[in-house]
């Protein structure tokens, strides 16, 4: 058993969780007693992905730095798992000059060319670019792959269907990953989607589709291993839909009036990190001391990123007026 690999996955999951939990706190600074979206060190919308760690970690465990990823409006877990620089990402979220984009992008628009990572605030926007990246990889004769992540709500967007067809036609090395957290803002999957599983839609484009139940990083790891290996080997695209849970609201400040009673508590009870932790313990890979050490490490890493972002200087207002075109 590759214990180092499992420990590294566990560590990344802890890092993501710590990051999202701390960001929730930082985001709340200056926004009380009355919530004001424009106030505090981090203004604007904030979509956190705590609870969805298995998707990002299980998939990205099979990606190399030179593989491309597109992510949606809820991007932090994917960015972290893909290896986006945590300090510069945090500085971007704080709107600082040292941020990935010098403060021009913000939390929904993180771009890191070195990690071949980009994201978008427009639902469904990431599918077509991933197909294009995959085309470029294939034409260059490399075995690089592209992965498009999006929510289950995004699978009702035209771009999803067009991109699956195009990718299938082109046999593009791209894997489509649908994060099924059961809600698109307030709308439950059953109210927006006529079939239970989006993975079944793969059949209409002649590509494999798999539903991964249980918000379980090991199950995601297995499914992604096969999917990405196939794409790398020239076997063409496929679709993974991964069952997961969103432990915060759609965005911070969401009153969550649409949730069923007890639903959130149920999700928390089934926390995927605690379950993985137990599995690691049962297999003798990790003990309580190890857990404490890893949690301390990731906490320090997150604090360092937040400190860096807080202390970084604001961008020069004049930078707003440049950069529309490549020079």
């Amino acid at each position: 058993m590759d214990t180092q690999r499992y420990l590294s996955m566990y560590r990344t999951m802890c890092l993501i969780r710590r990051y999202e939990d701390r960001l929730a706190e930082v985001y709340a600074e200056g926004k009380s007693p009355l919530f004001n979206i424009a106030a505090g060190p981090v203004p604007g919308e904030m979509h956190l992905a705590a609870g969805q760690e298995p998707v990002a970690v299980g998939v990205c465990a099979h990606l190399r730095p030179d593989d491309a990823v597109t992510a949606p409006h809820r991007p932090h877990h994917i960015a972290i798992a893909k290896g986006v620089d945590l300090k510069r990402m945090t500085a971007e979220i704080f709107g600082k000059a040292a941020g990935l984009s010098g403060g021009k992008g913000g939390h929904m628009h993180l771009f890191d060319a070195a990690a071949h990572f980009s994201c978008s605030g427009i639902v469904g926007a990431g599918f077509p670019p991933a197909v294009g990246a995959a085309l470029a990889f294939r034409r260059s004769g490399s075995d690089r792959v592209a992965v498009a992540f999006a929510g289950e709500g995004a699978a009702n967007q035209g771009t999803f269907h067009e991109s699956l067809n195009l990718a299938a036609l082109w046999k593009a090395p791209v894997v489509f990953v649908i994060e099924d957290n059961h809600y698109a803002i307030s709308v439950p999957k059953g109210v927006s989607t006529a079939i239970a599983q989006n993975s079944d839609r793969a059949a209409s484009y002649g590509i494999p589709g798999t539903y991964v139940a249980g918000n379980d990083v090991l199950a995601v790891d297995e499914a992604a291993r096969e999917a990405i290996a196939r794409a790398r080997a020239g076997g063409g695209p496929c679709l993974l839909e991964i069952d997961t849970t969103r432990l915060y609201g759609h965005f911070q400040g969401d009153p969550e009036v649409y949730l069923k009673a007890g639903e959130k508590e149920e999700w928390r009870r089934k926390d995927p990190i605690l379950r993985f932790e137990r599995w690691l313990a049962d297999h003798g890979i990790l003990d309580a001391e190890g857990v404490a050490r890893i949690r301390d490490e990731v906490a320090a890493e997150v604090e360092e990123a937040i400190r860096f972002a807080r202390e970084a200087p604001d961008p020069d207002p004049r930078s707003a007026f440049v950069g529309v075109f490549a020079e």
Binding site: G99, G102, K104, G105, G106, P315, A320, F321, V324
Partner: peptide, 16 residues
């Protein structure tokens, strides 16, 4: 707005 996309950071947004 001076023909640039709306930037995120507070001082940048205020500038446009």
């Amino acid at each position: 707005v001076p023909d640039v996309p709306i930037p995120y950071a507070r001082p940048l947004e205020q500038a446009v």
